[in-house]
Every structure is written in structure tokens, then in C-alpha cells.
Amino acid sequence: MIEITNLYKNFAKVEVLKGINLEIKKGGIFAILGPNGSGKTTLIKSILGMVIPRSGEIFINSTNIHNKWDYRKNINYLPQIANFPNNLSVIELIDMIKNLREKPTNDIELIELFALKPFLDKKLRNLSGGTRQKVNIVLAFMFDSEMLILDEPTTGLDPVSLIKLKKMIQLEKEKGKTIIITSHIMSFVEEIADEVVFLLDGNIYFKGTIAQLKSQTQQTNLELAIAGILTENNV
């Protein structure tokens, strides 16, 4: 379980998070939505400890994560932009992360699933965007951790891989894991998310199920509901 209280963060003069209070229960798929620059990634990175909040606290399983690092043993993270060390090959990168985490992995199955075998010995800089994203997904899913944080997981994926990804996310959910996702693809969110939180300008605008969001905005379609909120607030 994640508990966030009064989280503030600014980058120089730009205030990105303005007092976020949020509780994410254990188990289920939780989507963080919001327009570009609304603070989604900053929020995620604060949970991961990559961004240091100005004030406020984050508790994961009732422990304050400030200056801690070992809680990340239970988190798998898929970054938004798949930036990898360029002069490593795919297999070297996978082996390196395995070596660093020392946890059992199912990387072989995942490599098989995404047909990455022919790319294993290629350097990461020579891969296409979609293939990089597949490697990114393998890295994020190969460990068995309590919590998964996926920042824009669908970027650059072809339809076949997208279906595979959705299946994997559902499977992880069935194992009782907490999955946090950000995405701009509303159909994707609608299909998989149990609960959404809508960030606007560094504040939480809405938190609840998709059905609640639709009824609140009187729309039948999530995309229109979100667009409605945005135009209403002149974003």
C-alpha cells in the first residue's frame, strides 16, 4: 500500500506537485491520468525516490521511504523514455540488471514472448524505438515484485505487442500485485484500470473508478470525459 501526504515539489520556480494526498491500496490496477506536464512522472519518480520532494511524506507499507533504498526491491519500474546505456548489448543489459537485483527472473519466457532473441546481441543504440520499448518491458516484468510502476508502457508498441502487454498486466493483477500506470491512450486505460486518479496542475482533480468519472462528467466515453475536464479548466 502507498500513502502519500501533502507532497510538494518544485523544479526551480515551476511548482509541479502542489500538496498531493493519495492512497493507493494493495492489489489492482491504478491509472494516473492528466495532461502533459501535470506532474504524473514527477509523482511516480517521487515514489521511486528518484525525485526528492520539497515537503510531504510517502509511505510504502507503512514505512517512510525518505532516504531509504531497499524498498525498491519490491518495485519494478518501466521508465517513460527507454534510455539505456548505448554501448551495451541487450543481453548484457538484462544480465547486468539481474546481477544487480539478485532475484529469480523469467526473462527467458519474456524474450521468447516478445521475439527478442534475434536482438539479444545487438547494441541498444541500434534498436528501433519499439524494440527498445520491448526490452524496457522485459526489464520491468522479469522480476516477481509486489508493485509495478509503468510510465507510458504502450509507447511505440505494435498492436500484437500491445495485446501481449495487456495480457501480462492482467496476469500480474491476478497475482494480487499493485500496478500503477500512466498513459495518454484512454482506450487502454478504460480497458485495464480499476481506479483512476486525474492530476491537473499538480493537484488531484478526481479520484475514483472510471464509471464514477463518467457519471460525474455526464459522458459515456472516457476520452470525452477527460477532454471535457480539460476544456472546462482551459488547459
Binding site: 521511486l48 525516490g49 528518484m50 533504498w69 531497499d70 524498498y71 525498491r72 526491491k73 518495485i75 519500474y77 521508465p79 534510455n83 539505456f84 546505456p85 548505448n86 540488471i97 544487480l100 537485483r101
Partner: peptide
């Protein structure tokens, strides 16, 4: 040049 590498490491259970 190793910023990406660093970011990758920061998300792992490692001390800064």
C-alpha cells in the same frame, strides 16, 4: 554520457 545508465540504476534497489 552515462546519465541513462545512472537513471536505470536509480530505480534499482541501490543506495545513491
Amino acid at each position: 554520457n552515462s546519465r541513462e545508465f545512472t537513471e536505470l540504476l536509480l530505480a534499482q534497489p541501490l543506495k545513491r
